[in-house]
Amino acid sequence: MDRSLCALLLLGALALPDTWAGHHSLRYFHTAVTGPGLGEPRFVSVGYVDDQPFMSFDTDSPGQREEPRGPWMDSMKHEEPEFWERQTWIHRATAQNYRVGLENLRGYFNQSAGGVHSFQRMSGCEVSPELTFQRGFDQHAYDGRDYIALDMETLTWTAAVTPAMNTKRKWEADRSYTEGWKIYLEEECVQWLKKYLEMGKETLMRTDPPSARVTRHTAPHGEVTLRCRAQDFYPKEISLTWLRNGEEQPQDTEFIETRPAGDGTFQKWAAVEVTSGQEGRYTCRVQHEGLSEPLTLQWEPESSFTWYTVGGIAAALLILIAVIAGVGMWRRKHSGGKGSDYVPAADNESAQWSDVSLTAKA
């Protein structure tokens, strides 16, 4: 690694506190797509820290250059121009290697020329609140289906489909390739994550409490569902629990996974089917790092569209003032300016390993 990059990593690590709330992750998403009318296959790479994009590369962009994503990365573009130059060079080379990889994969699947095909890769690492390595991942997909993935415990590759056995045999024949990935994921990836956490701590380490509400929905045949929805929260870890007469109902609860809202915050809901007339027996408990204590919500017909937030008392006062003033309608003011949200550019080592996997290995 270049000495300048080593220095960047060291400075970032030295500035970090001993512990940070929650787990943290650094993930890179690479995608190559080919199809009629596209000319050269398009290659896109995006990097995420804690599900927040921080840099990206796109062969369809003007100049085909690595670019920062998010205000907290802008300073690095001006202070470390050689870093971005190196990243740009790496991803231009990686794009060409992914094009070769697509050709190899089409041969493995006995596909004729033409048609739309895609190759995707997600790699990265996750650390504990103490910023120690927890797990690493390197997963590949072809045409939207799992293709092959690294097993960090056994240092072997798991083929998800029969054609992937070609890649498995080649990669496992070169032990140094897999061992190199292990070193990168367990050591260097962690050091880069520490650096990025320090650079973006004001954004990445903030806590935005959720707003939440319970709504009632009736299906065409009369089935009644209560839905507990939380939104506007950060970080993404949250717990929604339905209780009936104070007892948890895990078996009867339907969840959607936590999703980015597009403004730097997240949203999630949990639903439970109930017997009509028994809605009052159910409560939803919302737990999040941004709340001083859990929220406990019930469905109330007269206020089913009211959002409950940490500032609920203030909201109630605003409504009262609006009523007194004769205002016919009061709308909850949504918070704004929260920044942006699973496909960023890799650091230099990550991109180099991508090069190896898609040329000599694929």
Rank of each mutant, 00 (worst) to 15 (best):
M1H: 06
M1R: 08
S4R: 14
C6H: 11
L9D: 09
L10C: 05
G12H: 02
A15G: 10
L16M: 15
P17K: 06
P17I: 07
A21E: 08
H24V: 08
R27M: 13
H30A: 14
V33W: 09
T34W: 01
G35H: 06
G37T: 12
P41A: 07
P41L: 04
R42I: 03
V44P: 00
S45N: 01
V46G: 09
Y48C: 10
V49A: 15
D50G: 05
D51E: 15
F57D: 02
D58F: 08
T59R: 05
D60K: 14
S61K: 07
G63I: 11
Q64R: 14
E66D: 05
G70M: 10
M73I: 05
M73T: 13
S75P: 02
M76H: 03
M76E: 09
K77V: 12
E79V: 01
E80S: 13
W84C: 03
H91R: 06
A95L: 04
N97V: 11
L102R: 11
N104F: 05
G107S: 11
F109G: 03
N110M: 14
G114I: 01
H117Q: 07
F119Q: 11
Q120H: 07
R121A: 02
T132L: 01
R135A: 02
G136Y: 00
H140E: 05
H140N: 07
G144P: 07
I148K: 00
D151M: 05
M152V: 04
M152N: 00
L155G: 06
T158P: 03
T158L: 11
V161A: 08
V161Y: 04
M165F: 08
M165K: 13
T167F: 08
W171V: 06
E172I: 06
A173C: 04
A173V: 05
K182E: 10
E188F: 01
V190S: 07
V190W: 01
Q191Y: 08
M199D: 06
K201M: 07
E202W: 09
P210S: 00
P210E: 03
R216D: 02
A219I: 03
E223M: 14
Y234H: 09
N245G: 09
N245I: 06
D252P: 02
T253A: 06
I256K: 12
T258D: 04
T265E: 03
Q267V: 10
K268F: 07
V272N: 05
E273T: 15
S276E: 14
Q278T: 09
V286Y: 03
H288R: 04
H288A: 04
P294C: 10
P294R: 07
L295T: 04
Q298T: 15
W299I: 13
E300R: 15
E302G: 02
I313L: 12
A316N: 07
L318D: 12
A322K: 12
V323A: 11
I324Q: 01
G326N: 12
G326S: 11
W330P: 09
R332W: 08
K333Q: 14
S335A: 05
S335D: 05
G336R: 14
D341E: 13
V343Q: 09
V343S: 10
A346H: 02
N348G: 01
E349R: 10
S350R: 00
A351V: 03
Q352S: 00
Q352N: 00
W353G: 00
